[in-house]
Amino acid sequence: MTAIERYLAPAGLDDALAALAGGNATILAGGTDLMPQINAGKVAFRPILLNIRRIPELRAVEVGQGRISIGALVTINELKDNPVIAKAVPLLAEAADHFASDQVRNMGTIGGNVANASPAGDTLVPLLVLDAEVELASATGRRSVPMAEFFTGPGRSVRRPDELITALSLPLPRLRTVSRFVKFGTRPALDISAVSIGFSATLDGGRLSDVRVAFGAVGPVPMRGRATEAVLEGAALDAAIIAKAAATAQGEVKPIDDLRASAWYRRELIHNLLGKVLSDVVSR
């Protein structure tokens, strides 16, 4: 284990960004991923351990100009319980309820879940269909990256080592937006997803528009289902379209065989669960 040379717990964002500037800091937020990764030898400490938990502005939840901004330090249980979030983006609150355990939800943060870039990260699929942008800051400036462009591989993203995720910014859903999140599993939570599906669209006069579909744990990164979206965009949801969308989804995901499921089974689940999701949208 590499020794930590310095431990910093700044109270201001600028101090944190200054500490990050050299790109030689390990960022500590909730710690729920960092600690096991360190213990398993998957991650080594960098010379600085930068605890960002004492930076108040990273906890802010703000609504304005048609968007909601959720600070990177907002915990998963806060996503679940915060009335502003529940009202603005209920899908995110719903997804949070399937996340790990109460204790982990009390510690783990939305910023950390995005930063870890796990293909099975539980908030990532809903963030994708909600068209979220990742707000990044560094000593040299700020930028926003759409979620769909953020991930580059398992555990990898476009975030530079000198950058910090400060918030997730989401457009407020329009009127008549319908959204769904399904995480496959045998229990409510404490389960690493074998597949998950997010769906969001505007349903007006029986037709879908602005359709976004995303899949978790069926490829190296959480992915948007562009081909499936194309099938659904502008369509009226009938049995034939649902069947076509489910088949398209089954074909466009790129799962692998692993301990948790075979690729074949993951494709079957994507097919069957997307069918269920769309049928559920019709029935409401």
């Binding site: 045998t186 229990r187 409510p188 404490l190 389960d191 690493i192 301990l259 948790r260």
Partner: peptide, 11 residues
Amino acid sequence: FRDYKLITAPE
């Protein structure tokens, strides 16, 4: 325990 699944309370 992540992948050796014991029954949990809700199940």
